[in-house]
C-alpha cells in the first residue's frame, strides 16, 4: 500500500467518526428535547430516533473496525 493512501484512509475514517459522533450528539439533543415535551411525542417519533441512534452506532462501530484493520497493517 502506498504511503499517502494509508494516510488519507486514516484521515477519512477519523473524519467519518467525527461526523458520526456529531450525529450522535444531535440525536442525544433530540432525545432530550423530546423528553422535555414527552406528553406530546408519539412512539413512532421515539422509535425513529432510536433507529437512527442504532444506525449511528453501527456506523461508528464500522469505522472503529476499519481503524483496527489499518492499525494491524
Amino acid at each position: 500500500m502506498k504511503i499517502t493512501t494509508k494516510q488519507i484512509k486514516i484521515l477519512k475514517l477519523t473524519k467519518e467518526l467525527e461526523t458520526m459522533v456529531q450525529e450522535y450528539q444531535s440525536l442525544c439533543d433530540e432525545v432530550e428535547e423530546l423528553n422535555r415535551h414527552n406528553t406530546d411525542v408519539d412512539y413512532e417519533t421515539y422509535s425513529n430516533i432510536e433507529n437512527r441512534l442504532i444506525e449511528n452506532q453501527e456506523k461508528i462501530k464500522n469505522i472503529v473496525k476499519l481503524l483496527k484493520t489499518l492499525k494491524d497493517e
Binding site: 467518526l17 459522533v21 450522535y24 481503524l67
Partner: peptide, 23 residues
C-alpha cells in the same frame, strides 16, 4: 477532534481510544 468524539460517543468509541492513539 477525536478526543471530542471519544468523549461524546462514550461507550463505543472509548474502546477505540488506544486504537486511535496508535494510528
Amino acid at each position: 477532534n477525536i478526543e471530542n468524539i471519544k468523549e461524546q460517543t462514550r461507550n463505543i468509541i472509548s474502546e477505540s481510544k488506544g486504537l486511535i492513539d496508535d494510528l
